[in-house]
């Protein structure tokens, strides 16, 4: 048999790795949207959440590194797999049509590499703005993340980019969540159809949820006369 080192390098092992990392990223998004939704309750609640997460959590650097590793593995393995798959069919079909039911092929599943690469670019911009952007102190402790978010989403073009990117997230998850379940080898006559459906529902909830947050932040900017630093 293949050595243990080769376990993740075969076509099935690659799929497992992409499935596990993808599913972890999906779980992270659930936590992320939960935290972000606290912005509706005002700066005190939102900043306190950020304070507890960032200052009261000694494991944060470790979690951040793990998240970065998961993300990089997911991106690296998928891009490499995509390139390898291109060489598996060097001569294209003159005519190729979707085969129809019971195929799960959708626009979302056909554009995973495009939506994935878009999200890579989005995340660089997103993390730069929120993790490495200008910080303001919050009197009760930690940083004024509320103000940071308000400022980051004060530009209509940026809000538009965020909303567009959330459509892309939704598309990626629309195929991704169900696909991860299949990649992990989970299959059951009764539960698989339900999981497939649940994956699509979660994709829509996450995408629309983040869109609402971005739009709400833009529409609830503090007074126009306020001086920005």
């Amino acid at each position: 048999m293949a050595s243990r080192g080769g376990f993740l390098s075969t076509s099935v092992g690659t799929k497992l790795l992409i499935g596990v990392t993808g599913f972890l990223l999906f779980l992270y998004l659930l936590i992320h949207i939960g935290g972000n939704a606290l912005i509706f309750f005002g700066p005190a609640v939102f900043n306190n959440y950020a304070y507890v997460m960032e200052q009261k959590n000694p494991l944060l650097p470790l979690i951040e590194l793990a998240l970065l590793a998961v993300f990089l593995i997911h991106a690296f393995k998928t891009v490499r797999m995509f390139l390898a798959n291109q060489s598996a069919r060097p001569v294209p079909y003159a005519m190729k049509k979707p085969a129809g039911t019971p195929s799960r092929k959708t626009l979302a599943s056909s554009t995973m590499i495009v939506s994935g690469l878009w999200l890579l670019v989005f995340l660089i911009i997103h993390v730069k703005a929120f993790r490495f952007g200008p910080e303001y102190d919050w009197p009760a402790g930690g940083r004024d993340l509320y103000r940071q978010e308000m400022e980051n989403l004060s530009n209509p073009l940026m809000v538009l980019f965020y909303i567009l990117s959330m459509t892309v997230v939704g598309s990626h998850l629309f195929h991704g969540i169900a696909s991860a379940v299949q990649s992990l080898g989970l299959d059951h006559p009764k539960w698989t159809p339900r999981l497939l459906f649940a994956g699509k529902v979660f994709a829509v909830i996450i995408a629309v949820g983040f869109m609402i947050i971005a739009a709400w932040v833009y529409l609830n900017q503090p007074g126009a006369g306020r001086v920005r630093v």
Binding site: V12, N85, R104
Partner: peptide, 24 residues
């Protein structure tokens, strides 16, 4: 393990869970 190794070596691609295969 042997069959997967052989298929990878033959130059077949990997699976994207689209399920076009089961439809045809």
């Amino acid at each position: 393990t042997a069959m997967i190794a052989q298929a990878d070596g033959e130059g077949f691609g990997s699976c994207s869970n689209e399920g076009e295969c089961q439809a045809v």
